[in-house]
Design a protein around this nucleic acid. Structure first.
Length: 588
RNA sequence: GCGCUUGUAGCUCAAUUGGAUAGAGCAACGGACUUCGGAUCCGUAGGUUGAGGGUUCGAAUCCUUCCAGGCGCGCCA
């Protein structure tokens, strides 16, 4: 509707602007004013154009109003307000028509033109032989939502899980776990059962500590690394087994979280191992590579170190090995050349901001991007804090295991479900607890501006009121309940919507904003915009539900209309939550 | 030291990217046909947007100087 409205305004005002010698008015847009008293939409164009038109804003606004007033089919009222705002009050039948057209569409999200933009989302990035902990939560769920949203808008999306699966840590694990693997296999034991990820992590921590004070161990690990890098088949075999054991547990958590990453998305450091040398060679060709203190580096003027000295990006270490920056540069090369990415989005914590800034700058400076105008975006986010405002840790100071955190959320949700809806079967209660508990954790994260750190609180995220997943899920369940009670097939129901009360009107207007919210998330890479929208929508529905009886409404036309509005609210909530990777139960 | 980032109601967060009287939830107080699911809704109270200066029709938002927190700054990722 907004799009049609803007087109109408542009056409209507073209003549007026021409008389004032204004050529470019394409930027003219409408806003939804904060206060409903100021109309359904408002226009600040008169103030923006006043200078160019050499005309007082209020006078210009008055002329614009006079012109817009002729559109009787659209506007019930048009007025000038304040310093030159133009407030537009839509006629109810315009809202009804637009709304009914929208409801009739199959897809709630408009598809991008021309096949969209080939986009890579790099997120989650787990390390092999380490259990997932809170530190992985944000990247995993924010990245997953961005992938869903950008994909839903019709862009081809490739998800990439940049695993930490190569290098010295892996060699250390192999050195330690190798004998255990051999022993288990020799007695034909079940490897997956006996060698858990938790065990692998324990082994890794052990060697890691041992390497520090035992040079013999360190040397042995170094030798493993050399063999691994040279493609020794025995080493590679062990390496592969460890990766699979590790990822099996990661996928258990992804499934629990309803995160869409699968094995095909694994594209870790090991994937680029044979591209590193040629990447460095190509950087060298650019003439920008220099040797400094034995390492091969690229220096760019915009990056300065501690004492103002130039800060390098090291592409090859003194010992000839490559470090993480080289992997990222190789990945950029691959992603633009082979995957033909037009947009690459990295979802990692804010501490890596400088790293990505450097990598992007180097990549452009040395010309390793097959598509020079590819959009490179780092999506930083803050830290998850405990109630003490310090990074969330266990009492003993360790990272909180993601598996344990999620289990606790589900357990707490179960207690709430048991209390609020004792009538559900035990099986349903468990299912609902999972949906509500996981949804709460994800929503708590997604609903805030990702720039900031946030304090993790089960009580707040599971609250049944306010901007939480359970509140949205409850609104959804209530709508389903209406249809259950009436014995109507919710998926097949259709009727024309009409405006008979202000709550209906508000809700219909809000429903028509959905697509805009989704588009904004894709552009700004900020999921909380969609969360805010859904919360406002659910709140709007709750008011409607309170003031507009549906089933007991005597006027059949109004009753059907309310059913239609309710049903479309349900669809919108469900779609929005789906884009957030959160389920919407029909009862809870 | 330099850089990035944050500072909004007692608490947790928003604010359509420069728009109108800065909005929600929690906590507090007061209400709502014995209810289409009260897991809800409506209202009251709560603010010098860290501080000062500037830019303009208009600033939480942009520029600038301070104050306070967090993070980062050569071979870890």
């Amino acid at each position: 509707m907004k799009k049609r409205l803007i087109t109408l305004i542009h056409q209507n005002l073209a003549g007026l602007f021409a008389r004032y010698g204004i050529e470019d008015y394409s930027f003219i847009d409408v806003q939804v004013p904060p206060d409903k008293a100021n109309g359904d939409f408002s226009l600040n164009a008169a103030m923006k154009l006043a200078k160019a038109a050499k005309c007082a804003p209020q006078k210009l606004a008055a002329e614009m109003v006079a012109s817009l007033e002729t559109e009787k089919d659209w506007f019930a009222r048009v007025e000038v307000a304040g310093p030159g705002f133009i407030n537009l009050f839509l006629a109810n039948n315009v809202i009804e028509d637009s709304f009914n057209k929208l409801v009739a569409q199959k897809d709630l999200v408009e598809q991008a033109a021309a096949g969209g933009e080939a986009t890579i989302i790099d997120y989650s990035s787990v390390n092999i032989a380490k259990q997932m902990h809170v530190g992985h939560l944000r990247s995993t769920i924010i990245g997953d939502v961005l992938a869903r949203v950008i994909e839903a808008l019709g862009n081809p999306v490739v998800r990439q899980n940049h695993l930490g699966d190569w290098g010295l840590p892996m060699a250390m694990v192999i050195w330690k776990a190798g004998p255990e693997i051999a022993a288990i296999e020799q007695r034909k034991g079940d490897l997956a059962r006996e060698l858990t990820l938790a065990r692998l992590e324990e082994l890794y921590k052990g060697v890691s500590a041992e390497c520090k004070d035992n040079p013999a161990t360190a040397a042995a690990c170094a030798e493993c690394l050399v063999r691994l890098q040279n493609g020794d088949s025995q080493m590679l075999d062990l390496w592969h087994k460890i990766v699979r054991i590790s990822m099996a547990e990661v996928y258990r958590i992804y499934r629990l979280l309803d995160v869409k990453l699968v094995e095909e998305n694994e594209c870790g450091e090991s994937f680029y191992r044979d591209m590193l040398a040629e990447t460095v060679a190509e950087i060298d060709k650019s003439g920008k590579m220099v040797e400094s203190q034995g390492a091969r580096c690229v220096f760019l003027d915009e990056f300065k170190g501690k004492d103002g000295s130039p800060l390098p990006v090291i592409v090859q270490k003194t010992d000839g090995a490559f470090n993480y920056g080289t992997f990222d540069l190789a990945a950029l090369r691959y992603r633009t050349a082979k995957l033909k990415a037009q947009r690459i989005v990295y979802v990692t914590d804010a501490r890596q901001a400088l790293h990505f800034k450097q990598i992007f700058a180097v990549a452009r400076a040395v010309g390793i991007l097959a598509l020079p105008d590819v959009k490179l975006e780092h999506v930083p986010f803050g830290t998850i804090l405990g109630e003490d405002n310090k990074p969330l840790k266990t009492r003993s100071g360790e990272n909180v295991k993601l598996a344990e955190l999620l289990d606790e959320a589900i357990e707490r949700a179960y207690q709430v479900v048991k209390e609020k809806n004792p009538g559900l079967s035990e099986e349903r209660k468990k299912e609902v607890a999972r949906i509500v508990g996981i949804g709460a954790v994800k929503y708590a994260d997604l609903s805030q501006n990702r720039n900031n750190d946030y304090v993790f609180s089960f009580d707040r995220m599971l609250a049944l009121n306010g901007n939480t997943a359970p509140y949205l899920q409850y609104a959804h369940a209530r709508i389903c309940s209406i249809f259950r009670k009436a014995g109507l097939d919710i998926d097949a129901f259709a009727a024309a919507a009409v405006v008979s009360q202000v709550e209906e009107r508000d809700l219909m207007m809000k429903l028509m904003e959905f697509n805009q919210a989704v588009v904004a998330v894709a552009i700004e890479l900020r999921p909380h915009i969609l969360c805010n929208y859904l919360y406002e929508l659910a709140a709007c529905f709750s008011s409607f539900y309170d003031k507009c009886p549906v089933l007991s409404c005597e006027d059949a036309k109004v009753r059907d209309s309310r059913l239609a509005i309710s049903n479309f609210t349900r669809r919108t909530l469900a779609k929005g939550l789906e884009l957030l990777g959160i389920s919407a139960p029909r009862e809870m």
